[in-house]
C-alpha cells in the first residue's frame, strides 16, 4: 500500500492506503476529519467539496494519491480558532443551513466562488452552485448567504 502524504489544514499528514482510496475516504477514515461528507456516488451532490491547492475539488472523484504533496483545506480548517470564516458567519446569519449535511461542501464551494468571481449577483451564484445539492433550504437562504459572505470577504 502506498504511503500518501499531504498537508491538511496546515498540518502534515501521512497514511498508508490502498491505491484506489478516494481523497474523501482518506480525509474521513484515515485522517479522522469527518466534516467532509459523502452524499452520493456519482459526483453530483458536492457534499465532499474541499480545497486542493486553493481550488475547490470534489474529493469523491479524486484519488488520495492524486493529492500527494498537496495543500488541502477542509471545512475544519476554515475558521480561525473560535472565529468563523466570513462565509461561515454569513451562512449562520442568513440561515443558510438546516440539517447541516450539505453545508461543508456548500461553504467550501462558496468560498472558492467568492475568491474567483467578484461582484456576485444572484443569477451567477445560482448558476455557479450547480454542483452542490441541498434538499432542505430551497437554496433561497444559501444564495443570500453566499452574496453576504462574498461581500464580507471583500468581494
Amino acid at each position: 500500500m502506498p504511503t500518501v502524504s499531504m498537508t491538511v489544514n496546515g498540518k502534515a499528514v501521512s497514511a498508508d492506503v490502498e491505491s484506489r482510496t478516494l481523497l474523501v475516504h482518506y480525509i474521513r477514515d484515515h485522517i479522522g476529519l469527518t466534516g467532509t461528507h459523502v452524499g452520493c456516488d456519482t459526483s453530483q451532490c458536492g457534499a465532499c467539496v474541499v480545497h486542493v491547492n486553493g481550488k475547490s475539488v470534489k474529493s469523491c472523484s479524486t484519488l488520495a494519491v492524486q493529492a500527494e504533496g498537496a495543500d488541502v483545506t477542509t471545512i475544519e480548517g476554515l475558521a480561525s480558532g473560535e472565529e468563523l470564516h466570513p462565509m461561515q458567519a454569513a451562512f449562520k446569519e442568513n440561515h443558510g443551513l438546516q440539517c447541516g449535511f450539505c453545508t461543508p461542501g456548500m461553504v467550501m464551494s462558496a468560498v472558492d466562488l467568492a475568491n474567483n468571481m467578484k461582484n456576485l449577483d444572484e443569477a451567477t451564484i445560482r448558476e455557479q452552485l450547480d454542483g452542490n445539492i441541498c434538499r432542505c433550504t430551497g437554496y433561497h437562504n444559501i444564495v443570500k448567504s453566499i452574496k453576504d459572505g462574498a461581500e464580507r470577504m471583500g468581494g
Partner: peptide
C-alpha cells in the same frame, strides 16, 4: 449552526 458550519457535526457515519 456552529458545529455544522465548522465540520463538527456528528452524523451516524462519522
Amino acid at each position: 449552526d456552529q458545529r455544522f458550519l465548522t465540520g463538527n457535526g456528528n452524523y451516524t457515519d462519522d
